[in-house]
């Protein structure tokens, strides 16, 4: 490949792949919100239950 094409391709692909991975990891590591939240699968997880008043 010629240099300019290689530079544009690699920088674009690295930027896009990096941003995709970065934001997805941020989602996975985001602090959990107490129930009730928007999602059904975690409804029974004890650590997500809001403390009783």
């Amino acid at each position: 490949m010629n240099t300019s094409a290689l530079v544009v391709m690699l920088s674009t692909m690295l930027l896009v792949t990096g941003a995709t991975i970065y934001f997805f990891i941020r989602v996975l590591n985001a602090p959990h919100k107490p129930e009730p939240d928007s999602y059904l699968d975690n409804d029974d997880e004890i650590e997500r239950q809001a403390p009783r008043a």
């Binding site: 989602v27 996975l28 928007s38 999602y39 059904l40 699968d41 975690n42």
Partner: peptide
């Protein structure tokens, strides 16, 4: 509802 955040 959605099942999970990743699913959404």
């Amino acid at each position: 509802s959605w099942g999970s955040r990743v699913g959404l």
